[in-house]
Simulated assay, not measured.
Amino acid sequence: ALGLRPAEVRAHWDAARLAGLVETHGGHARPGWRLRAWDRDDMAVLRGWVALFDAWSLFHPAHAESATPIDPTAVAEVVEAMPQLLSVLQLSAGTAPREELLDLLEQRITELRDARCELPAPGLAAPSTAPLPELFDWALDRLAGVGALTLPQGAGGEIALTPLGSWAVWVKLEQICVAAQSPAGNIEQSAEDMLRGCVRLRPGEARAEYRAWIAARTVGTAVQELLDAARGDDALLRQLAFEALRAVGAPAEPGVREVSADLPLRPYALLWLAEQEGGDAEDAHALLTREESTWLWIDTAAALNDHGDTELLVRHIEAAHQPTIPALLEEVRSAGHPLTVQVLLALAAAHPDPALAKAVRRAAFQVHTGG
């Protein structure tokens, strides 16, 4: 119906998948989050193109049409070196001769090998692998295939960045600058260590740290690390991880949606998704069942206790959905949260009302003994 060859259909499908327009799960496909924003959000379109730009080397693998055996290490070296060449193009008014860029590529790969303390092979290619010029042409062709470059027609022409290519390189350079401005110096830490480093920061400082940490990674890697940190036993890290995911924004939606069935993360994921869809915070809580709301109440109390904020911990009782303290304690006892006893003991120790503190301690004892 489209008048396309099968190979062209596969290429367009791959482009749509890499740009986040479609998602595949097992043997099924469904609209991606970016497709839902495509007609109303210009930035979603540009971010989708940058995602495709980031995946240029996957769009058409180097081994797909080569008659010469391809060494994966050689391909990886070219992929790692190309960002510097694109930066050179950006700084040289967007154009440069092919031979000049090929020389720069050879220099960059030599630097990469020197950094790994490897002896350079003659001509930068072993006899059993494709020569560097062939891999360079593959890289240029793939970058042109995603719309980042225009290639010369015939010999002697210059390679040029397209307006989209120039914009994407500028975005990447901006991300490097953001990462370099990490206020607390946590950008090279794991997600868990970065979040722990943000515990004592003011909200604005923490958000700047989240953005710098995210900018130093691919979005997929950053989202997965944050979700892995949220899965642990530390309630405070769980809350901070979802705060950091707010700094990621819409690109984190597929990952958050995947964990929305897991109880430790489900209440946070549902509220996060509702916020992304523009829902009101109060209305979003209606998406949770009573059991999920109680579980989230305990988890938040555990985070406040970990943070050492006893005043907010006491005030947290007022945020419960249950109308009375006995009703709250009844539901807390049956919630099955692993930190229930610690939360109740912390509440009892912090609350100024002796009668209420006694009731809370009794509830903690009952949970501890299985009553």
Rank of each mutant, 00 (worst) to 15 (best):
L2E: 12
H12S: 05
L18A: 09
R36F: 12
A44I: 01
R47D: 15
R47N: 15
G48L: 06
W49Q: 15
A51D: 14
A55H: 15
S57F: 15
S57D: 14
L58M: 03
H63P: 09
H63C: 07
A67E: 14
A67N: 13
I70T: 15
V75M: 09
E80C: 14
V88L: 13
V88K: 07
Q90F: 14
G94Y: 09
G94C: 11
T95G: 06
P97R: 00
E100R: 12
L101H: 05
D103A: 13
L105V: 07
L105E: 07
L105H: 08
Q107P: 06
T110G: 09
A115Q: 10
L119Y: 11
P122A: 06
G123D: 12
A126C: 08
L132D: 09
P133I: 02
E134C: 01
F136D: 05
L143D: 10
T150L: 12
Q153E: 14
I159A: 03
I159P: 02
L161T: 04
T162I: 06
T162F: 06
P163Q: 13
L164Y: 14
G165N: 05
A168C: 11
V169A: 12
Q175K: 06
I176T: 11
A180D: 08
S182F: 03
A184C: 10
N186K: 06
S190D: 08
M194P: 07
L195C: 05
L195M: 04
R200K: 12
E205Q: 11
R211I: 11
R211M: 13
V223A: 14
Q224M: 15
A230C: 11
G232W: 08
D233I: 08
A244E: 00
P254G: 01
R257Y: 00
R257E: 06
S260L: 02
P264A: 02
L265M: 13
Y268G: 05
L271K: 01
W272E: 00
Q276V: 05
G278R: 00
H285Q: 05
L287R: 07
L288G: 03
L296C: 14
I298W: 04
D306M: 12
L312I: 02
L313F: 11
V314K: 04
H321Y: 09
I325Y: 03
P326V: 05
A327F: 00
A327L: 04
A327W: 00
L328E: 02
L329S: 00
L329E: 00
H337Q: 04
P338S: 04
Q342T: 13
L345P: 01
A350P: 01
A355P: 08
K358Q: 15
V360P: 02
A363Q: 00
A363G: 02
A364N: 03
F365Y: 12
